[in-house]
Design a protein around this nucleic acid. Structure first.
Lengths: 146, 146
DNA sequence: GTTAGTGCAAACGTTTTGCACGCTA
DNA sequence: TAGCGTGCAAAACGTTTGCACTAAC
């Protein structure tokens, strides 16, 4: 994953007309640090330690701003809970149904395969924005959540 | 899509230890008739016309039963709403961000491509159950929802 | 007759909203 | 200092649950 410095974030926020508040920096920082895909609650818990005066509502609002600014993206998993992803480029997800964990899955070969496929295969009456592969399965020997 | 008769449904329900109630038949019938992926509300509205004495809660419960019985599956889209799918075999989805519609996308070539890919590419510490391709984009000239 | 399924309404958890206040630029 | 962003709490939303009643087997 490409590391983004706080200065970069600050710059990117401003470029998109967003003010670089401490909350936004903290939230975005937490987001890029974690490679799993935290829920709003998890992000909240994460930054709450170092930044107690922050509200869950702000996490949601900030997330929306980040997504609008193109700095993050949303993922919804089969449990119906919104999760956030600190990267915006195309990548797949591995979703473990036993633990609920979601891991990134990036593979150049797969991406090339699909890009090539969709370039050849024109879909009738549909303009493709992006595509992603979602793999469901299990991590062996993992412990079920809850 | 393989057409399933009501007799088949009735049989399948019984095989899975489920009673074949009129509600279940109506709900499943509505599900296979529509190729888009209705939400619980939509299924409810659909069957309510012909079957007024049915409750939204029953739609949810019945959906769960159908999914357990392997007659349907759940899909969650980026709007965070649960949707139901009258088919259970692997297939992709086209998701129009303008209208919110989800359409099935089935293509043998793509499926073969991916099956082959994942057979070659062993994922470390992950046992694949199934995979699907989710394509996001827009239907040209469509009217935005709401 | 027994058990599973239904309907209703209340409860639940997540996400959104409204508004007064505070802080960034 | 002008306006965006925040915090709080309430509301909204989709979904689940509990329970008494009904219907399928």
């Amino acid at each position: 994953m490409e590391k983004v410095s706080l200065q970069d974030v600050q710059k990117q926020l401003k470029e998109h007309g967003l003010k670089a508040t401490p909350q936004r920096l903290a939230i975005y920082h937490a987001l890029v640090q974690r490679h799993d895909h935290p829920t709003a609650e998890q992000v909240y818990a994460l930054i709450h330690k170092q930044n107690p005066g922050i509200s869950l509502g702000t996490v949601y609002k900030t997330m929306d701003s980040l997504v609008d600014a193109g700095l993050a993206s949303k993922v919804i998993t089969s449990d119906g809970v919104l999760r956030f992803d600190g990267k915006t480029h195309t990548h797949g997800h591995l979703h473990c149904t036993k633990t609920g964990r979601i891991m990134d899955f990036e593979d150049e070969e797969l991406e090339a395969l699909l890009t090539d496929y969709f370039q050849r295969k024109k879909l009738p009456n549909f303009v493709i924005d992006h595509f992603q592969v979602h793999v469901t399965g299990q991590i062996p020997d993992s412990r079920p959540k809850s």
